[in-house]
Amino acid sequence: MSEFGLVALLVGALGLIAIGIAGLVLARNLFRLVLALAVAEAGANLLLVLAGFRQGASAPIIEGGSTLHQVAMVDPIPQAMVLTAIVIGVGVQALALALAVRAREAYGSLDMDQLRARMEADIIAAAGTAPTTSQEAPSGARPLPPPLPSPARIAAEEPSS
């Protein structure tokens, strides 16, 4: 591969990472946040494969059942690492999506800012402290809810499998 092609791949990988990170800081929709993460992870994986690339080398698979003809091969370790990294990414993204589904069900929104505000309100309500805007007000003055809120849903369900 030409020098130009390698630099183009490098720019592509870093570009994906940059797009992903820009998405992570800019997006507010939970689903887009997960997508941004997936894009950034794709970039990092491409970078990792690129780290094992050697000019003019072949894939690390021996053909013809003989070890005698020694052609140059690319580094197999980054390829194994990428396999691991991809699987890790899939697991984390599935978990994040499941959490997004539940958050949307509970709060009726997929907007991170709104969800965060609702979460803060819930935490404050559960703890029974005054909201942060009135920090100087005496905090014991309000009637206190019971110390531990019972979780919103512990519905009857199937035995965990």
Binding site: L83, T84, V87, I88, V90, G91, V92, A94, L95, A98, L99, V101, R102, E105, R153, I154, A155, E157, E158, S160, S161
Partner: peptide, 19 residues
Amino acid sequence: ELSILFAAATAVGLVLGGQ
């Protein structure tokens, strides 16, 4: 890696399963 997939599947079950 297998354990991570297992952990993710278990965690998804924990998050979604209760309803």
